[in-house]
Simulated scan of single mutants.
Amino acid sequence: MAGDLAWRRLSGGRIVASTSIRTLFWDIGGVLLTNGWDRSQRTRVLSRLGVDLEKYEAKHPAANYTWERGLTDARTFFRTTVFEQNPDLELSFDVLWPQVCAESKVLNAECLDMLSELQQAGRLSIATLNNESRELNNYRLDAFKLRTLFDYFICSGYCGEMKPLPGIYRTAIETSGYPPETSLFIDDKQENCDAAIAQGMQAIRFESPAQLRVELAQHGITVS
């Protein structure tokens, strides 16, 4: 890595001083993997199982608010959104849950390769900063062997707060043990990047592996 102060050229050509990055925070869904349980995924799974989608979507926002904050568990979430709304449907959690998990897939293998290279280099602390329910996050970390790629995990299901609200970013900064400007956050949503910047972090909005590699280099982080 460069020294404590590096120089970075902004898109408009202006050159500014930026503190060297010590901690790299990654979103998971939309960067490394597909999302965990977005509208297209739940439409696909629930339609196949005969669930009333209109009734499900009416219950989803309130139930998801607590589920993704770790304030309720998956069985309670699906009892509220699926089973109580479809009492005549012969469907159990043990049948539904594996199909929910099966919707998760690798989105950008190239990003996983970059992440592995950075972890092996050992020059940065590397952590997640993502919104996900506790159970689905745990499944994804295990199924895609992500635990070895990160030093720790800042997940909404663990800490009770979600992006883009400031609390989860403050937790990430405090857990890093370094000033906020030494943290670089990667996310595919601009609102989440803006929220990180508002807390003093630096951020890259992810668009593609090639674009990410270029922008990491602008922060003094080189990957092959």
Rank of each mutant, 00 (worst) to 15 (best):
residue 71 L to Y: 13
residue 182 T to C: 12
residue 12 G to L: 11
residue 74 A to E: 09
residue 143 A to H: 02
residue 158 Y to E: 07
residue 141 L to M: 13
residue 172 A to E: 04
residue 104 S to F: 13
residue 108 N to R: 04
residue 19 T to H: 14
residue 156 S to H: 11
residue 134 R to C: 12
residue 157 G to E: 02
residue 67 W to L: 12
residue 64 N to F: 14
residue 173 I to L: 01
residue 51 V to Q: 09
residue 92 S to R: 04
residue 152 Y to W: 10
residue 49 L to H: 07
residue 162 M to N: 03
residue 209 P to L: 06
residue 16 V to S: 03
residue 42 R to Y: 00
residue 2 A to V: 14
residue 15 I to S: 05
residue 109 A to V: 01
residue 161 E to R: 12
residue 138 N to E: 14
residue 95 V to Q: 15
residue 3 G to P: 14
residue 97 W to Y: 08
residue 53 L to C: 04
residue 110 E to D: 10
residue 134 R to V: 11
residue 107 L to G: 01
residue 86 N to W: 03
residue 203 A to M: 02
residue 104 S to V: 13
residue 223 V to L: 01
residue 186 I to Q: 05
residue 184 L to Y: 02
residue 142 D to M: 06
residue 53 L to Y: 10
residue 60 H to I: 03
residue 48 R to H: 14
residue 35 N to M: 09
residue 105 K to T: 06
residue 217 A to I: 14
residue 176 S to C: 01
residue 32 L to F: 11
residue 191 E to A: 12
residue 131 N to Y: 08
residue 53 L to A: 02
residue 131 N to A: 04
residue 199 Q to R: 12
residue 106 V to G: 07
residue 60 H to C: 01
residue 44 R to A: 14
residue 121 A to N: 06
residue 43 T to Y: 14
residue 14 R to A: 15
residue 116 S to T: 13
residue 156 S to D: 09
residue 1 M to G: 13
residue 36 G to H: 13
residue 123 R to D: 11
residue 46 L to V: 00
residue 33 L to F: 05
residue 209 P to Y: 05
residue 150 F to S: 04
residue 203 A to Q: 10
residue 35 N to D: 14
residue 161 E to I: 00
residue 138 N to K: 13
residue 90 E to K: 12
residue 129 L to M: 00
residue 52 D to K: 07
residue 115 L to K: 00
residue 35 N to K: 10
residue 32 L to M: 11
residue 2 A to H: 15
residue 74 A to S: 12
residue 116 S to G: 15
residue 9 R to G: 01
residue 89 L to Q: 09
residue 185 F to L: 08
residue 201 M to K: 08
residue 175 T to L: 12
residue 9 R to M: 15
residue 144 F to R: 01
residue 43 T to A: 15
residue 205 R to G: 01
residue 59 K to Y: 13
residue 198 A to C: 09
residue 142 D to E: 10
residue 48 R to V: 00
residue 29 G to V: 05
residue 125 S to V: 02
residue 66 T to M: 10
residue 191 E to S: 11
residue 62 A to L: 06
residue 5 L to F: 15
residue 97 W to G: 11
residue 80 T to F: 00
residue 219 H to K: 09
residue 216 L to R: 10
residue 39 R to D: 12
residue 39 R to E: 11
residue 201 M to W: 04
residue 29 G to A: 03
residue 27 D to I: 04
residue 184 L to V: 07
residue 42 R to A: 04
